[in-house]
Write a protein that binds this DNA or RNA. Structure first.
Length: 109
DNA sequence: AAAATGACGCATA
DNA sequence: CTATGCGCCATTT
């Protein structure tokens, strides 16, 4: 363990997600420069397993679907957190996803 | 060293 | 709309 750049980048971006907003694995991957490294982003979160204050519940797949909710301590925590922030979730999917979508490659310098 | 796996994404049928 | 396949990159077996 030495170059945790990828991890740190993912953590930082996820932590920078404004409250009430969400982003996708692909968006983070693209921001990091890895266009098709969406899997790596998910891998980073899984490997980290929410070690710090990583609001991983704000990271969903490109469809706004809570694919990784099953990996949370209580799988229902993800949806609850999102709802607490004002994000509506129906059937494990974010409602009005495009309106709450936050793209780091655009919002961040 | 090679194959398998994965919190994804996109193309095609 | 759903179903299937391929690619991507790093980790693990």
């Amino acid at each position: 363990m030495v170059p945790e750049t990828f991890f740190e980048n993912v953590y930082e971006v996820v932590k920078l997600i404004p409250k009430g907003k969400v982003t996708s694995y692909g968006a983070i991957a693209q921001y990091l420069g890895v266009k098709s490294g969406a899997r790596m982003v998910g891998w980073a979160l899984k490997a980290s397993k929410i070690p710090q204050n990583i609001p991983a519940h704000r990271v969903v797949n490109r469809s706004g679907l809570l694919t990784g909710k099953l990996h949370f301590s209580p799988p229902s925590l993800m949806q609850e957190k999102l709802e607490q922030e004002g994000i509506k979730v129906f059937d494990d999917k974010i409602v009005d996803f495009q309106s709450v979508f936050w793209d780091p490659s655009i919002e961040l310098p």
